[in-house]
Each structure stands twice: as structure tokens, then as C-alpha cells.
Design a protein around this nucleic acid. Sequence first.
DNA 1: GTGAAAGCGCTAACAT
DNA 2: ATGTTAGCGCTTTCAC
Lengths: 340, 340
Amino acid sequence: MDRSLKRIRPSPPSAHDVARLAGVSQAAVSRAFTPGASIAKATREKVMEAATELGYRPNLLARSLIKGVSDLIGVVIGNTQNPFFLPVLEELSTRLTRAGKHSLVFTAEHGHDADFQIEDVLRYRVDALVLMSASLSFELAEKCSREGIPLIFFNRRPRWDLPMASVTGANEKGAGEIGRHLLEQGYRRIAYMGGPTDSPTNNEREEGFRRALEQQGAEPAMRELGYLTREGGMAAARALLNRPDRPDAIFCANDFMAIAAMEVARHEFGLEIGREIGIAGFDDMPDASWPSFDLTTYSQPIGPMIDRVMELVLDLDARERFEQVIVEGALQKRGSTRRG
Amino acid sequence: MDRSLKRIRPSPPSAHDVARLAGVSQAAVSRAFTPGASIAKATREKVMEAATELGYRPNLLARSLIKGVSDLIGVVIGNTQNPFFLPVLEELSTRLTRAGKHSLVFTAEHGHDADFQIEDVLRYRVDALVLMSASLSFELAEKCSREGIPLIFFNRRPRWDLPMASVTGANEKGAGEIGRHLLEQGYRRIAYMGGPTDSPTNNEREEGFRRALEQQGAEPAMRELGYLTREGGMAAARALLNRPDRPDAIFCANDFMAIAAMEVARHEFGLEIGREIGIAGFDDMPDASWPSFDLTTYSQPIGPMIDRVMELVLDLDARERFEQVIVEGALQKRGSTRRG
DNA sequence: GTGAAAGCGCTAACAT
DNA sequence: ATGTTAGCGCTTTCAC
């Protein structure tokens, strides 16, 4: 084989090439590939035949240039450590593909805002931007808003009161149910392991949790921050379990930390989960139901949540209502909060 | 606020708009945004000022149209269940961003080939296609090859002997080390839990494992297929553990199945991991080192592997060597194979 | 139903 | 160093 042949990447056939081969105009080729365009059956067939022969594929970059939209959806994933986001990404990707869209995915470093990458991805004229637990600066958010680039927050609400759409789980409600459930189970010294205090998601969960405890006349919970990471969760668990007034239950702001806390309690402190220390999380990520963890949690139903994201991505009207959609999940009572 | 204003998505400013405001030619604007272009400092400043004022951002679709390349890299993820791929995706995304590229991600349904989505993504003139444990048909692979679209297989080798690049872990070597390690630990009735038999990755691991056992004069292992999924792994574990000649150790083709098997052994069969049943995996995914699993495994070092992927993505020459890169990991001896 | 022609926003010669 | 010009591959009028 001649290596030099491989060095030259052949430029792919264009609509013009196809037109010439089919003996029609270039416009006809375009029509043949445009569903619903007015073109005779015979012409379309001629075109398609030529296209197949040449291996022609319409260039979407050119099409996007004209249309002003790219069918590209920017997707930012913060907190990539958290396995919760893999099924979410899969669902989103599947649904986008089905809708003829594509996801331009990038990850943001935890704790940093995603401004840099977003500026970058905006150059592709993405139709919308889905932010999964990622932060961006107020300035950039405002810029997107001004430029009419729809921002959709997933599992996170914007920190500012700019008009922006979001799809979140039922943070307050779910956290409240967890709180009541823990009290029902007989736990009394209950701790909250939080995420960053500037995260709206965290604050809603904490708020819902505290309120539930108060309403039942229980003492306010002690608190430790685990920052939604594994290491943070482990450190926070150690801090809590080392206290003289050790809590008898911990509600963690997400499952990922809850599992970390459970492992610390079990393997470092030798505690029996459930009986000696109740642990609950939030998300119902796949691992939560594994027998190793059997974690009580409040579910964030990925399917329905992504349904709503897709509506916001696809339906301009819905988007412009700047809805703050809350998708309810359900309390998943499991062994990690069973005292008996 | 006037709702009608929001309905109209303003078309973003073009280089022309900037040129007019700055009092220069449109080409000057292009040069101002092209690193290394010959342009006077003063001109560039004028341009930049105007650009900032208008909120101008070069349209990459237009640029790509001219250049013939998009800086877009297609990334297909098969087996999205497996948490191993989240860190991989993160690393890849980070590295691509750093290189000024972007990932067009989509997921392929397990067991199906990704032809449909790939055909689709090819329309964006992606510079390369990275396949992570996904399958595609021979026809499509050949087509890509013919069209000069570089295909890079990650964690998987092509099933055919078309000249294509791949980056994989040291499957045979690693599996061999696992096999010898199990024998050293005193296990004798050793089973292999495999992935699909048409997966080269699976076959390499099985081959390396079998060979190691044979070389030590051990009996050939029994085998059960777990298809690399959680459900499959659990079913296979049940089948193995229910046998009258129950194995005393199981090597699973990936960590994800190994963890599933461990849970079945522990929670359904009441076996003590390590002492009563040795379990080993492959990948060293994050969960493997969690105290709950403490899984013996052979690592696939994500960083170095992605390094090699990036070389193939960025360096035409390397790509054309169609290298089959094998990145060595290391045996991670942990509690799941400790008999004592 | 079809072709000719204009132009999406940019880069890359080519002049000057 | 800068402006002018010609496209990149397509969609979309506009005639016919």
C-alpha cells in the first residue's frame, strides 16, 4: 500500500459532484435531502443513486451556517466524579439523537465555573446549553441571556434571579420526607452533611430537611460540609462520627457522599449501618440500591427529568416561560435507615 | 419586559459588523482573531474593542466550512452502565478542550452497533472518531477507512483486520497476572466470567488468563458469560456459585461484573469474600478500591491511555501508523483475593 | 418541479 | 500591514 495515498485526506464529495453525476442541478440535490421539499420522485431517485455511488453525505456545517442554528446542544458536566451523571448523560444523549440533535459535551472542573469552555462552545452556535451541576459566572449567564442562547439548568437552579429555565428534583420535598422518615425510625441526633453552601440545590435540600425536623419538634441538626465529593464526604463523616455527641443518623446531600459516609462508618468506626447509625442520601443513583449499600434515599427520576429538559431544548415556547420545573421523585426506604 | 422581544433570537454580530464599527476591512477582523496573523497592534486593538462592544464571537461553523475540518471529535460510548467510562470521558473531554477540540458525544445501546449515530455524526465532518467499547459494523468501519476518517478504538480492538488505531490496556498480560496471583493465593477451582465472546477485549483477557493457568499446570477454568453488565454478572455469579463443584475463585472480565459477583456471593450466598471465594476484576475503576469491595484487579491507567488517544487524535503521522497501542497497568492486590 | 443565482460568515490568496 | 476578491457547501428565493 502506498503510504503517500493515505496522507492526503480526500475531500468528501459535495452536492455539486452528486449533481453532475446525476445530471441535475445542485439545488435538486439539496431538495432530495430535504424532507418535504418539492421534488419529483424520479429526480430524487436519480440523486440518491448518484449520492450512494459517491458516498455523499450532506455537510451539516454548511447547512448550519445558513440556517443559523447547528442542532448542536452544549452539555456541561460539573462534578464528574459522581456516577449519578452517567445514566443522565446516556439518557440525554439518546433523546437528543432521537430528536436529530447532538451533544457537544465538556466537563468543568469541580469548583470552577465553566466560563472558559462555554465561551468556546458558543462559537459553534449551539442551539442551547444544558448545565448539569456546573457553575458559570453571572456575567456569562447574563451574556447568554442577552444573546438569546437558552440556558437550561439540570439538577441545579441558577444562583441569580435571571430568567432561566431549570429542571430539578424535588429537593425541599424530598429532603423533608427524608427528615420525617428518620424521625419515624426513631433517630434523634440527626446530622446534615451538605454540599457547598452557595449551591442552590444544597440549600434547598438543607432547608427542606431542617424544616421537617423543626415541624416535628426535633432538635436542629448538626451540620458538616462534604462538598458533594467522595473525599469531602469521608472527611465530613469522620468529623461527625468523632464528635462526643455523635449523631445517630446522617442525611447526606447526595448519594455519592452518603455511600462514602457509610463506608467510613462501617469500616473505620465499625458501626452497623441502620442500627447504630442511620444514613440517607439523595438521588437514588444506581449504586444506592446495591445490596452493599441498600441506601435510603429520595429519587431523582432521570427519565422524566430528561423529558422536561428535552421540552425546554426543543420547544421555544416552553423555554421562554423560563420554567423552573420540579420533577418529583419518591422516598426509597431501605436498610440504611432501619434501626430494628 | 416585552415578551415579543424575546421571541426573536437576534442574529449574532458578524465579522462584518465588527469591521464596520472598527473602521477596518472584514479581513482585518479575521486576522485579529487568528493567532500569528500579520496585523498591526493598533488595528488589532481597534478590532478587539469593537468586538467586545458588540459581543462578537467568531463563528466556528463558517471557519470549519472553509478549513475542511471542524475540530470536532466524535466520541461513542457503548456500555454506559459501566462507571469506568465516566472518568475516561472526563479525562478525554479535558484533554480535548485543552487542545482546542470538542467532543461530540453519543451513546450506543449495548449490544447494538453504533452505525446509525455514527453516520449522523459524520455529517459534521468530525476530525476523528473515538469508539469507547462500542461496536460498529464492518461496512461502516470500511467506509470510514476509505473516506479517511480516523477511527480510534479505546479499550477495544477492531474486530476485523482493517488498518485501524486502537488504545487498549494490557489485557493478556493483566489477565495473566491475575491468573498467577489467584494460584499463588492458593485458589484451585478458578472460574472465568466473560464478556461477549465476539469482543476482542474479552477474548484477550480470557486467553491471557487461560494461558497463565495452563502454564502453572492448573486445571482449565470453568467459564460463564456475564456480558460485562451488572445483571449479566449477577446471573453468571449465581450460576457459578450454584454448581456442585463451586469455584473457589472467579476472575471477571471487568470490575463492574466483579462487584456484581461479589455482592451475589456475599449477600445471596453468605460467602466471605477472599476466604471462601476469591474475586478479581479488570479495570481498577474507582469503586474497586472502596473498602466495601476492596477488589483485586488489574488497572487500566486512564491518564496514559488518554494520552495515547490524544496523540492519535492530534498527530496525523501517529494515526497513520495504525498503531495498536497497549498501555500497561499494574496488578492491584486487594482483599478480595486474600485467603488468610 | 426545476435551475440559476444570491449569500450564510468566514479564510486565504492576491494585490497594493 | 491592509483591503479586495473568491470561494467553502449548502439553502433559499426567484424565475421559468
